[in-house]
Amino acid sequence: MTTLAHTPCEPCSGNVIPLSYEACQAHLKALPEWQIIEHDGIMKLTRQFTFRNFADAMAFSQRVGNVAEQAGHHPILVTEWGKNTVTWWSHEIKGLHLNDFILAARTDEVAE
């Protein structure tokens, strides 16, 4: 897996400027399954994961929740039968930060 997952998260306060679209594209190269979406003018990082059943999707949600709690940074998790959609962004800065890409990479690791 990418070394991005092993990069320490940086402190992020409300006075940090969100990453530009170009900077996001550079980080996205390490996360080929993820895509950037824009919702209400805010760039977010999202990916859908598929599973054999609801129990596997729920177990994945718990693993992502554990990653989120450890980092103190929380995504939107939508759990459905056989799939889970994870969306990361930094709420405080209303955009994407390096931490979102780090946590997306860690999400990929717990999906394996």
Rank of each mutant, 00 (worst) to 15 (best):
R63K: 15
A68H: 09
D56E: 15
H73C: 08
D100F: 02
D108F: 00
A55S: 14
I36E: 07
N66M: 14
D100V: 00
E10M: 12
N53I: 01
M1R: 06
T2L: 07
P11H: 13
L77N: 13
D40N: 14
A55M: 12
P11T: 13
K29L: 14
L31Y: 08
H39N: 12
G65W: 00
A26E: 14
H97M: 04
G41Q: 05
W89T: 06
K44E: 04
G82K: 15
L98S: 11
S90R: 08
I36L: 13
P8F: 10
W81A: 03
T107G: 08
T50H: 14
Q70V: 02
N99S: 05
F54N: 04
K29D: 11
G41T: 09
E38V: 13
A26M: 06
W89H: 15
D108P: 01
L77V: 12
N99L: 07
A59T: 11
G82S: 14
S61G: 12
L4Q: 06
T50G: 05
L4H: 07
A57Q: 11
E69A: 09
F51P: 09
P8D: 06
L77A: 04
A68Q: 09
V86G: 01
G65M: 02
I17M: 14
E33L: 12
A30T: 07
A111P: 00
H27T: 00
E92R: 12
N66L: 15
A111H: 06
F60L: 01
N84R: 08
R106C: 05
W88C: 01
L19Y: 11
E33W: 06
A59M: 09
S20M: 04
T7E: 10
H74V: 00
I102G: 05
D56K: 14
S61Q: 03
D108V: 00
R52M: 09
E33S: 14
I102K: 08
I76W: 11
V110M: 02
H73R: 09
T79C: 07
D56R: 14
S20I: 08
G41H: 06
L98I: 15
D56F: 03
A23L: 13
W89Y: 15
N84V: 11
H73P: 14
P32Y: 09
W34I: 01
T46L: 07
C12H: 07
V110R: 01
T2F: 06
R47K: 15
H6G: 07
R47I: 00
H73T: 05
H27V: 00
M43W: 01
K29V: 13
S90D: 05
G41E: 02
F54K: 03
A68C: 09
A30N: 10
F49S: 03
P18A: 10
C24Y: 03
M43F: 02
G82Q: 15
W81D: 03
A5P: 09
D108M: 01
T2H: 10
N53C: 03
D100E: 04
M43K: 08
A59D: 11
N15K: 13
D56Y: 02
V110P: 07
T50W: 08
L31G: 06
Q62H: 10
K83Y: 09
V110D: 00
Q48R: 15
S90Y: 10
E10A: 14
W89V: 03
E22M: 08
E33M: 11
S90C: 13
C9W: 07
K29R: 15
K44G: 02
I102C: 06
A105W: 05
P32H: 10
G82H: 11
I93E: 00
S20W: 04
H73N: 11
V78K: 12
E69L: 07
M1E: 08
N53T: 03
M1G: 15
